[in-house]
Simulated scan of single mutants.
Amino acid sequence: MRPKEPCDRRGADRLPSALLCGAACVSAALVFSIFAFLAAFSWPVLSGGQLGSLLSWHWRPLAGEFGILPMVVGSLCLAGSAMAVAYPLALGVCCFVHGCGPAWAARPLFVSIRFMTSVPTVVYGLVSVFLLVPVIRGAFSGSGFSWLAAALVLAVLVLPTVVLIIDTQFQAVRAEVRVAAAAVGLAPSQEMRHLVLPLSRRGLAIAAVLGFGRALGDTLIPLMLAGNAPRVPGSLLDSLRTLTAHIALVVATDSHSAAYNSLFACGLILFLATLCVNLGVLSVRGRRLG
């Protein structure tokens, strides 16, 4: 009976592979189905002579203008500004935890970051409405519901995601260079600057791409804090509306008009943006940085 053991082992090894392959096929089929659904429902809008109205800078449903470009610009502005705040903070936190800061403070800081991942998004938004918005309103003119408020809170929301991705990369690199760094006599800060950071550029790029995708796809924070004005913001104190918040607002108030039909085009744009983010991650993983 012993000679049959390798065959049995190969059969046991094939089962997880088959299950993973099946799960991958199902996931791919679901993603393709979502794309087909959005494309099918967007086609009447895109081919019915409404493309010019859709790709305009004015959202006036009563006048027959359904321009979504202000929401596209608002999404990019908000996600980009949030990442401009969150990414340097995340990098600083990871450097602090991995040797640049005192050990007694590193662990509580990282535990706090991990705890932030379990806080619901609506809690961030609700607390900010009563704490952050009045501060902005008192310091500057306006209502306080602005690009600035949404960007700051969205940066806090995205921060744990970016920190955990960078931390995983740092752990993998430090495990490889720890012996060499100790042999040369490098201090933890020198090890981080001369070895860990240069060798982690691929992971740092992936963290930036995934963090941007996370910020781009959030709905509640821009819905609660950005003011939801369908226009291109001129400053950080102006209101803006993102594509995700736009979809939520229109769906909540309308379900039969041309404005509602334009939402499928918004969903298609978000889907393609998410696809570009994932392709960016694959591109970074598939090539050598530096």
Results as ranks from 00 to 15, higher is better:
G67P: 03
R285K: 09
P120D: 10
V129H: 10
P88G: 09
Q169I: 02
A258Y: 11
R231W: 07
L195V: 02
T274G: 14
A183E: 15
D13M: 13
A248G: 01
G138F: 12
Y87V: 00
T253I: 11
L197K: 09
D218G: 02
S17P: 00
V179W: 12
S81I: 12
T219S: 06
F110V: 03
P134M: 05
L51G: 08
W104T: 10
L164C: 14
A182T: 06
A29V: 06
M192Q: 09
P198K: 01
A86G: 08
A265M: 01
V196W: 10
G99A: 06
V119D: 06
L131V: 13
P188M: 04
P102Q: 08
V85S: 02
L275E: 14
T219D: 05
C95F: 13
G48E: 11
W104V: 12
R202A: 04
S42N: 06
P3C: 08
A187P: 02
H194F: 15
T274F: 09
R214Q: 12
V251H: 13
S128Q: 02
A259E: 15
W59L: 03
V72I: 14
P198C: 00
R114Y: 04
L237G: 10
L225D: 04
A84D: 10
R201K: 11
L51H: 08
A39P: 04
L54N: 00
S33W: 14
V281Q: 03
P6H: 09
S17Y: 11
I34P: 01
A208W: 11
M83C: 08
G11S: 12
P188Y: 10
L109S: 05
C21D: 14
V111Q: 12
S75E: 09
L197F: 14
V45H: 07
A28C: 12
Y87P: 00
K4N: 10
G80T: 05
S189Y: 15
L54R: 00
L289G: 09
F170I: 00
A24W: 11
R241Y: 02
F130R: 11
I221F: 04
F115V: 14
G290Y: 03
L236I: 07
G48H: 08
I113H: 02
P233G: 06
Y124A: 01
V281R: 01
V250P: 02
L109H: 05
S112V: 12
R2A: 11
L204R: 00
A273T: 06
S118T: 15
R288D: 15
V122H: 04
M116A: 15
A226W: 02
L210M: 10
G144P: 01
L69C: 03
A82C: 08
A103P: 08
S112Q: 06
V177Q: 06
P108R: 04
F110M: 14
G213Q: 10
